[in-house]
Amino acid sequence: MALELTTAKILLKSASNGNRRDLSKLLTLLESGEKINLPISDSASNSTVLGVTGPPGVGKSTLIGRIINYWKEMNQKVAVLAIDPSSPRTGGALLGDRVRMDSADSGDSVFVRSLSTRGHPGGISSSLMAMINALSYCGWNKIVIETVGSGQNEIKIAAFADKIILVDGPDRGDIIQAEKAGIIELADIVVVNKSDMPASIKVADSIRSALSLGGGMDAPEVVLVSAERNEGIVEMMRIIEDCKTPKWRDRIKIKERLISLWDSRLLSSPKINGIIDDLETGSISLNDALDELAR
């Protein structure tokens, strides 16, 4: 343990001096649950963490490819952590987000890492926080998190991101989804992608009217873009950079961090497999199991 801690510290020092290979190795250590205390520095707070979420297939990765280019042209250092699900059965994962980000391999100022949830969608959270902090410490001032295509209750991203983009598309039938509560209330901006398809205008209108019914207070802007054709990206980025995140979001952020940490403690408990066995045979109740794990 003590030896590993030293390794992490050596890697951190080298990574903060610009060694890319060591940064990558450090992220692997953090991903596997290693903890590291980062020295407090001014640069750490200068990073913007942008969360990009939305259902599968709406174009999140393609859009992130454009965001990378936008920031790259402004001489920013952009790091992307792209999260895909792992198989609950085998633990394996196919991480394909890079395929759609053609700017992902475009130079020294762009760093893209694919991450799998390793069977624990909640469990990745605590290591994700550490990875974001390390990237930030090493001078990556724009950090983008792409989450697993989310459902309505996927609000974990709120725990990490300073700004949240919710991406939607025209080819999803059921607009009533926009009327439901959840991530849409936490988004700083709602982006309807694939604006080259006529249905996207209708979708954007539906989302706007759904949001305006809520009294319009703090309602996020709804913008149309085409990531594929690179249209509307600059306008979208200006809105994101200018928008003020409402105060009440801070409280949700703290709460989500608490829940994330709780999840990861639960999942990393050495007792968890034994307790799942007991639950399977029915020898203990769920409540007893939880009490046992929390002890």
């Binding site: 890319r20 290979r21 990558s24 190795k25 992220l27 692997t28 792992s86 198989s87 085998t90 633990g91 394996g92 994962a93 196919l94 991480l95 394909g96 890079r98 395929v99 759609r100 053609d102 992902a104 391999d105 760093f111 893209v112 890492r113 694919s114 799998s116």
Partner: peptide, 30 residues
Amino acid sequence: RSLRDGGHEVVYTGLRRTPEQISRIVMDED
């Protein structure tokens, strides 16, 4: 796909990558 089913984490790069891009991807992904 079959490596995934074998329990490995697989990152697919997409088509037409240069040797330089591939080596950078291997580095970033560790």
